[in-house]
Amino acid sequence: MRAGRYLRYGLCYLLALVWFVPVVWMAVTAVKPTPEVMSFTPRWIPSEVTFSHFGELLAKKPFFLWLLNSFQIAALATAITVVVTTFAAYALARLEWRGRNVVFTMLILAMFVPWEINSIPLFFIVKDLGLLNTFLGAALPLAALPVSLFLLRQFFINIPTDLEDAARIDGCGHLGILWHVIIPVSLPAYGALSIFIFIFSWNEFFWSLISLQRADVRTLPIGLKTLVGAGDIQYDLMMAGSFMATLPALIIFLILRRHIISGISMAGVRR
C-alpha cells in the first residue's frame, strides 16, 4: 500500500517535470547566445545570459502593440459578455415563462456549433457592419459564445429563492432583485466567467486571423505567427517572442493561481 502511494507520488512528479520542461527550455533558450541555441547537443546552462534576442525582436516587431491589442480585445469581450449574459441568465434561471425550456435547449444545442466555421459569412457580416479591423468586431462574436450564458445560468439556478422572496416583499422589482440579491451572491461565478472568457479571448486565433488583417490591429497570437512565416528559421527570436508572450500569463498565474484554477473548474461545463 505504502509503496503504491510512493509510486503514485513519483509518477506525479515525473509527469509534472516532463510537462513543464518545454516551458523551461523556452525560457533558457530565450537568453542564450545564438550559437548555443543552434547547438546539436542541448545546453541547459547557457555560458552567458544575453538579452539581445529581446532587443532584436522589439526592434523588428511591434510586440507591445500586439500585447496592448490583445489586452483590449480580451477586456472588451469580457465586459460585454458579463453585461449581456447577466440579464439573459436571469431570464433563463429565475423567471418562469412559457418557452423557457425551448430556449434553454436551443442554448445547449448552440454550444455544439463550432463558431469558427462561421468565419467566412461572419467576415462579410462584420465587414458590412464596418467593424472589420476593429477591436469591437473581434470581440463581439466572442461575447456571443453560448458557453458563457450556460455557465452563469447554471449558477443562478442554484441560488435559493428565500432571499429573492424577501427582497420581493421589500418591494424590489426584477432589476432590484438582480442587483441586490443575485449579483452579490454570484461574485464567484462572475470571477469564473471573466477568467474563462478573458483567457479564451486572449488566446483566440481563428477569428482574429480573419477579422484583423491590418498590421496595426494584430493580436499577440497573430503577431507571433509572423515570426515563423519568413524563410529562414530564427529559433532565438522565436523563443524570445514566445517567452515574452508567456511572461504576463506566467506572472498573473503565479499571483492568481488558486482563483484561475477554481474559476476554470467552475466554468468547465459539468452537471
Binding site: 509527469l15 509534472a16 517535470l17 510537462w19 513543464f20 518545454p22 516551458v23 523556452m26 483567457i199 486572449w202 488566446n203 486565433f205 499577440l220 497570437p221 497573430i222 507571433l224 505567427k225 515570426l227 515563423v228 522565436m238 523563443m239 517572442g241 514566445s242 508572450a245 508567456t246 500569463a249 506566467l250 498565474f253 493561481r257 484554477i261 476554470i264
Partner: peptide, 17 residues
C-alpha cells in the same frame, strides 16, 4: 500548476515552441 500551465499559452507559442 505545472500540468495546467500549458493551457495558458496561446496557440502560436505552443506551435513555435
Amino acid at each position: 500548476a505545472a500540468l495546467f500551465f500549458p493551457y495558458l499559452l496561446n496557440v502560436s507559442v505552443v506551435g513555435i515552441l
